[in-house]
Design a protein around this nucleic acid. Sequence first.
DNA 1: ATTTAAAATTAAAATGGTTATAATTATCTA
DNA 2: TAGATAATTATAACCATTTTAATTTTAAAT
Lengths: 138, 138
Amino acid sequence: MENIETIFKEKHLNLTKPRIEIYKFIKAHPIHPTAETVYRAVQKKLPNISFATVYNVLNKFIELGLVKEFNIGKETRFDGNTVPHIHFVCLKCGKVEDADFSGYDKISEAAQKRGWDVKEFSLFIYGICPQCKKSSNH
Amino acid sequence: MENIETIFKEKHLNLTKPRIEIYKFIKAHPIHPTAETVYRAVQKKLPNISFATVYNVLNKFIELGLVKEFNIGKETRFDGNTVPHIHFVCLKCGKVEDADFSGYDKISEAAQKRGWDVKEFSLFIYGICPQCKKSSNH
DNA sequence: ATTTAAAATTAAAATGGTTATAATTATCTA
DNA sequence: TAGATAATTATAACCATTTTAATTTTAAAT
């Protein structure tokens, strides 16, 4: 587990307070936050941070592969987990849960048969989570 | 293959010119268009159509399950193909290609093990398409 | 075919998330 | 510590999408 300083050095990123706080938050909280959630969280540490900085930093992280971006409906979410994985999205409570994925080889094989080189994939599974299944007895 | 009149009747949709033209375009052209592409295409048939109508109609179609919506990066795309399938997205030329998917049972099974009921899935595979692979010899 | 009520469309303005701008401040390297 | 570069800030601008209110069209009944 490398520390922030090392990671930023590797990516030629200056160590600034906004970047450090945003990085720490998004890596420590696997909640797939919106930009606003990131902003509100980091604001507690850096009261003067601006929204523009949150977007700038997140976009820079995405550019460097430190963060992933995706949409749930019309909402843009950010994900500090860059290890390939899949998402379960609850259609009732909106929760997004990470899950391992073992089907990458199959996908890659199928793609190669079609002449494609696979660089990345995104698999979202929409449904009802266990908690919502329980609480819908009414 | 049902005709538009029948489909709209089933969905309790009044038969209006904008709806008919948008429906015909999006079902006949599997190009995963943006709202603007739909607007420009339908404008050829209905010069006075407004952008608001394109959005209203597309949203109504989505609500009724006649059309699906997804994002490629920051761009919103619409898909008249509502049969479950996957998308190959070329990172070079931007093309989005449909493909069959036979792994639904596996996904459904894995989800059930976690206590989830699967309603829908979305699988995007990002890579380089055969055409772009050829033309990148420079 | 007319009439009427409900629904859909239109043009325009408003909205909201995101990005661009220009000035200020912080970071890094020497 | 100084100077050059890069990042941050506040603000304004942007642009895709939605809302609003007036007008037009549709569907059903006469």
